[in-house]
Amino acid sequence: MDRSYKELLKLRRFPHTWCPGCGIGAVLKNVAMVMKELGWNYKNTVAVSGIGCSGRMSGYMNLDALHTPHGRPLTAAEAIKTVRSDLNVMVLSGDGDLASIGGNHLLHTSRRNPDITVFCNDNEIYGLTGGQAGPTTPQGTKTLTSPRGEHHSPLRLGRILTQQAPYFYARTTVYHLNHFKTCIREALLWKGFSFVDIISDCIELNGRRLGFKTAHQMFKWFDERFHIVEGERDQLQEDELGIAKAVVKEVPRPAEKEEVKPEIPMEGLKPFTLEELERFDGQEGRPIYMAYQGKVYDLSASPLFQGEKRMRCHLGGKDLTKDLDIAPHGEDLIFKFPLVGKME
């Protein structure tokens, strides 16, 4: 067996902090194995973790790694990717960190779709703090904070993360090893935000309370609960393991609109001299004509020239070209009115 993946782990810090039988070790190992296959190492990869048992993962990776405050690894990863697009950025964290305290960041980082990969060790419990109910704890489960069974239904990460394309959501377990590795590989290679929901076990602080004696019994339970679905999917049912993904074609940014000035033929328009124009001043029932850039417009219909409200700034029968250059409004106001002639 090829053990060269071990160079990606800080073995000098072993033994690690996790309990025997915990699924996190499998997550760390398999991610390292796939990284090795892909040639990812400390020169081109950064790992980011949050808080919790799973938050210790990045510290065991032989990379530059971040151990952020609780719930914030996604934001940190996004910022790193923004500044250093040449680096591969991955998040190694858990369900409590990503979906509960970091839930808002999950919504918005996935919406902004940075090219990062998230591995979520989903063990349905807060393990490090002793076994309190988490956001993904199934309804009815007894935990330290749900002594008579969890009242609320769990957060369905798969549903949330597959609502807005593009998305990549994979669900797998630490038991279905080949499938697990395929998901890791595809997620790491996905361009954009990819999320791998890894159903994992916490035997000591969840499993035993549920009646399991060993981690292996929990793995068999995973096998009963889930089945692998092959092929392209855009959604996954709650009992399915697989990859749901969707791409959207990149919509080109709308180019800034260029000002299109109406082209009006000057031929055939009635010529006006300035004296003639001055007669159309709106007094005694005469129409109001105004000149702008050599053209004469009929502004009689403008509410600004009616009765008492008559506009104070401009008088009828004038050439407005200079006035409009300094006016607070644009010239588009005048194009709305009928063209009646041209200046000589």
Binding site: L66, T68, T75, A79, I80, L87, N104, H105, L107
Partner: peptide, 19 residues
């Protein structure tokens, strides 16, 4: 980055600095 809240803005600032 116009972040979703100040928590994210501050975390992003520090992470970008480390990057």
């Amino acid at each position: 980055l116009q972040a979703e809240d100040e928590i994210a803005a501050a975390i992003a600032t520090i992470s970008a600095s480390l990057a």
